[in-house]
Design a protein around this nucleic acid. Structure first.
Lengths: 290, 290
DNA sequence: ATTATGCTGTGGTCTGACCACATGGCCTGA
DNA sequence: TCAGGCCATGTGGTCAGACCACAGCATAAT
């Protein structure tokens, strides 16, 4: 067998190096980029897509599953206008899944999550404060303030409910700033460490005292924003966030750049936070679930 | 038929409201949270996982596909230690996919992406500058500076290569800050608007002039960081980023909070940026591809 | 000792078959 | 004519089974 087989198989089938599901994903992405698909549109039926792209239905479904988790589509069984896969483009759920899983898999350090939240939150209040001075009629922080009012139902709000309202308040501020990117990031960051936040409550010396302080700080932040004092708002929001985390012993030293032993991180109970637990406070569905 | 059928079907089959792939996803997430799975570990084989969880293999595959896109696992065919699904926990690829698709689907506004990048980048250089003053031996910005040196090969670097090096430089700064969350966010933000950045090059009055200015600004930023002047570094990085985007007419007014017509955004050619295009400059694989 | 060979287990893919479900038209009876 | 119920239809959700390509490894042949 000294002779090499020279019959080139090149003409037979130019094999696609991409895996089948990637073909589907890229096809849909191209349609999105070209504007052929916009939010509200229906994707073709799975079987249709499969035959059109020359792949199996299971490959189509793998791609759709990715799009669903990333928050790009919503799927529904049955028939009619609401059935099928519909473009929705809601990033928060995907951001939450991504961050929560990365934290779980140790791709993200919890302290980095908190630090990042600090950065974004400071940017949010800065933007809001500047927007407040820019317009004579003032800024409407109504949606956020309503959440603060809800928190004031003292005694009738459980700790978990309080923290959920707290998260919703901060998220509302981000949304009011008008930056959907930052808002979804905030949602994801908060979501990814929610179990840690909850687990830290028992470390608090006094819950009534802490919750009272938090409520007060919230009002102060709103005041600073409405006054248009960006610097003050930044400082207050920083103190607000770092205060809580230091009090629960999550962050040993607020700005320590060195990595430390992770002994202070709580050992989470299995299944404490799982993929489908979107509570009522989240305006956005996390991972779609039944 | 006035009598209601009271035979409770409760005992027959407590149907799981979750879809099968969510069961798999939550199972794996629980293993991650409990530390039973850590980076480097192998997931059970698909067929094994399917039978253990009582679902079909296709459902397992849908969950694995999600994990793969989110950057949690890497899959490989064949046998041996490198085959199968392995926990990797690399967030950048997933962040990039998420943001790019959300931009494509109009869930994210490009201007918000740029504004967010501004916020994060300012935080990065602030942290680096503060770290620089904190240690006597200074900060080692070597990895970032090397990229600047590569950009200085004037004339022998194409526009696309230059911009890729530029992106790598900013990403390197983020990574040097030690915050993996911000670093992956930066990677995603930049990746999601890469096609817009490239499409803006023809709008520049003079590429040699602009590229020269950018290189100079990069050096200035590094200088400010090494000097430990956080305020100066922030200002320079802000000017650096906004300067480029305004010059390419991407952002009409840097801080205009009002939404405007999207006419200035380039109409992207279909397939220009697709899911599997991770160039050599990215240390991290984006979406896995062949 | 070295090389060749085939076995084995992995992910990748497709096909076909069901199911549950929601809709909407049709048919029946009032 | 109208109201109600019924069923055909098309959708996603799921599963089982069958291949394939591939990488490693044990074994056999040289």
């Amino acid at each position: 067998m000294t002779a090499i087989d020279t019959r080139a198989p090149a003409s037979v089938a130019p094999v696609d190096p991409r895996r089948a599901w990637q073909v589907v994903l890229q096809h849909i992405e191209a349609d999105l980029l070209a504007g052929r698909l916009v939010p509200g549109d229906h994707l073709p039926a799975e079987r249709t897509l499969a035959s059109e792209l020359g792949v199996g239905r299971s490959s189509v479904r793998e791609a759709l599953r990715v799009l669903e988790v990333l928050g790009l589509i919503r799927t529904q069984t049955g028939s009619g206008p609401q059935s099928g896969a519909i473009i929705v483009a809601r990033p928060s759920g995907g951001m939450s899944s991504l961050m929560r899983l990365q934290v779980a898999a140790q791709g993200f350090d919890v302290r980095d999550v908190v630090k990042t939240r600090l950065v974004l939150e400071a940017a949010v209040v800065t933007e809001l404060a500047e927007a407040s001075v820019a317009r004579i009629d003032g800024l409407d922080l109504g949606p956020a303030v309503e959440l603060l009012d809800a928190m004031d139902a003292d005694g009738r709000v459980s700790e978990a409910e309080f923290l959920a309202l707290d998260a919703a308040f901060h998220l509302a501020l981000a949304e009011l700033s008008g930056n959907a990117v930052i808002a979804s990031m905030m949602a994801g960051l908060r979501n990814s460490i929610e179990s840690y936040v909850l687990a830290g409550v028992p470390n608090l010396p006094s819950w009534p005292e802490t919750s009272g302080r938090l409520r007060h700080e919230h009002r102060d932040i709103v005041d600073a924003i409405e006054k248009g004092d960006a610097e003050l708002a930044r400082g207050r929001v920083r103190a607000h966030i770092t205060g809580y985390y230091t009090e629960t012993n999550f962050i040993s030293a607020p700005t320590d750049p060195l990595r430390q032993a992770q002994g202070t991180l709580p050992e989470l109970v299995e299944g404490n936070r799982s993929l489908s637990s979107s509570k009522g406070t989240e305006p956005d569905r996390g991972l779609p679930h039944g």
